[in-house]
Design a protein around this nucleic acid. Structure first.
Lengths: 206, 206
DNA sequence: ACCTGAACACCGTTCAAGT
DNA sequence: ACCTGAACACCGTTCAAGT
């Protein structure tokens, strides 16, 4: 929660957090293109140079935003597989995969701009180790699901990384299409169960 | 100001084409973030206001760039299914799908920035009808492939749009992961045959 | 018709100076 | 330690004026 402006000489209580919070709102409401440090400083009631104290440059702010996004996504995915019917001992792969897909797509629908930002990282060596680690952690939920399933014989043999990639690419593709408005969000959510079924059972007739 | 000796008062032969060409090079070499109209005008040897005569604003230039990208991608995909072994009368679905996937991923690997631009369109009503049409045309190759296959009984029954979406999302997901450097391009290309196989045959054992 | 040059309102980043 | 205010070098966009 934000701190009340009790004693404030000219500085904020926790300017860094306040900047991130406002940046996230701007990102959500007006998109990444409308996010400027000066406007952000203005909205936070601080001089335009103040953000520079907390973020080396604009990219550092975007990185922090993305990192926060990964943490939220990670929590969402973990919760989806750890609670509800998908976590029941007898839950089959279809059910668990669907729960995971629903959670991921839900995040994509509710945070399209953030998701875009999270995946907009190029191979810039600048302090993006944290981000790379966050990506791996997020993929971890999916990897775990499939290695477990493989051990139970519920899934085809072969490199688990490749199998995970097929599922991840499929879900990420849906998310990307939604984020770029090439695919209607509601439509995608409505057809998600069938999508997962096709993914698991294949496009060829059995 | 240096002036060439040819007949060139102050205007270019075909400034619009020259701007697009230089913009495409900048996009490819330095990324979309480094693309500015003023710098582009400088590189093209023209005043910073000149681009405004040919493109309403920066977005219009980006739209033209994206449209050109769709046209090139469309030609690539059409060629992939219309020529080579994939076009043979006896070619099975696996082979044709692989050819299409290879063509799409190849385009993504060679034009990552352009592809990103092509899919960065939000739902802006401004003259993006051409772009929307281009997207549909591009998806057309995939749709045709699957409706044909469905008629031959090579593919599962059901809404062809949904089946196409599963394949499209999977390929687009791979492309997006490559473009954002979350996935190594060579690795993805090397595993593409297996990827298509898994997609067609399913992740569950038969 | 096509382009220029100046102007305007913005940027991100830096840095001496303030408190 | 944390922030300000001015400064610098950029932007995109517009428009009267030039050719």
């Amino acid at each position: 929660m934000p701190r009340t402006a009790t004693t404030r000489p000219y500085h904020h209580g926790d300017l860094r957090a306040a900047l991130l919070e406002n940046a996230e709102r701007t990102l959500r409401e007006k998109g990444a293109g409308a996010l400027s440090l000066r406007e952000l400083a203005r909205a936070t009631g601080v001089s335009h140079a103040a953000p520079g104290r907390h973020f080396k440059d604009k990219q550092a702010l975007l990185d922090a935003l993305a990192l926060d996004g990964y943490e939220r996504l990670d929590r969402t995915l973990t919760a989806a597989t750890a609670t509800g019917p998908a976590a029941a001992p007898g839950a089959d792969l279809d059910r668990r995969m669907t729960a995971l897909a629903r959670a991921y797509l839900g995040f994509a629908v509710e945070n399209p701009e953030l998701l875009e930002l999270m995946f907009a990282r190029k191979h810039e060596p600048a302090g993006s180790e944290h981000l790379a680690a966050a990506v791996d952690r997020t993929l971890g939920s999916l990897t775990r699901l499939f290695t477990d399933a493989q051990e139970r014989g519920e899934i085809v043999q072969g490199d688990p990384e490749r199998i995970t990639l097929v599922a991840a690419a499929s879900l990420h593709g849906l998310a990307a299409l939604i984020a770029s408005c090439a695919l209607d969000a509601d439509e995608a959510m409505a057809g998600l169960d069938e999508h997962v079924r096709l993914l698991l059972h294949g496009l060829k007739p059995r």
